[in-house]
């Protein structure tokens, strides 16, 4: 890991130096990259603190048994329904869904359901769907959801089962 870390630090320093130099000498592409960086950071800072506070509260309040009951082995098909509903209310994007999925899994949600949640939060977040309908029409959105959602669930089951057989464990200590 040590060598990896130093590469990361070197990369970040290069990036910052590049931006600083671009702004100092008026190098246009560098300035544009800098603006992209700041506008996207701002977008995320609007969502991430809330998301992580909610995840923190989830960790201290929700009992392991509750997660297991609704998202675990015994939940059966209900687990997938819960995952899709939860995904619909997720704000932001996959970058918010990853940490929540990770917390759910560490509290006993099964992998199949976690992958369904991840896939569904990519494709059927309610605010995004409303936006999509208004620009692309109901038919477009309906086809997209009706085709992708079943595929997401089926592939989640396949991927989850495959990983369980390989006794896969997500990263520790995040």
């Amino acid at each position: 890991m040590k060598r990896n870390d130093s590469i990361k630090i070197a990369g970040i320093s290069c990036y910052i130096l590049f931006l600083a130099a671009s702004f100092a000498y008026g190098f246009k592409p560098g300035k544009e990259i800098g603006h992209n960086f700041f506008s996207f950071s701002l977008d995320m800072l609007k969502v991430l603190p809330c998301a992580f506070i909610l995840i923190g509260l989830f960790e201290v309040w929700v009992k392991r048994q509750t997660v297991e009951k609704h998202f675990g082995q015994e939940a059966g098909i209900r687990g997938y329904i819960w995952a899709v509903l939860l995904a619909g209310t997720t704000v932001g994007g996959l970058y918010v869904a990853f940490p929540l999925a990770y917390s759910l899994h560490s509290k006993g949600a099964r992998l199949n359901v976690i992958f369904t949640y991840l896939g569904a939060s990519a494709i059927c977040r309610i605010p995004m769907v409303i936006f999509e309908v208004s620009f692309m029409g109901v038919k477009f959105t309906a086809i997209r959801l009706l085709v992708s959602l079943p595929l997401v669930i089926v592939t989640s089951i396949l991927l989850g089962d495959y990983l369980v057989k390989r006794s896969y464990k997500p990263m520790e200590g995040k």
Binding site: P49, F52, I53, I55, G56, F58, V60, W61, P99, K174
Partner: peptide, 16 residues
């Protein structure tokens, strides 16, 4: 417990 939750949130945020 809320404070503990916020601490967990901060720790997770910093890690990632």
């Amino acid at each position: 417990r809320t404070l503990k939750g916020c601490k967990i949130a901060l720790k997770k945020f910093v890690t990632i």
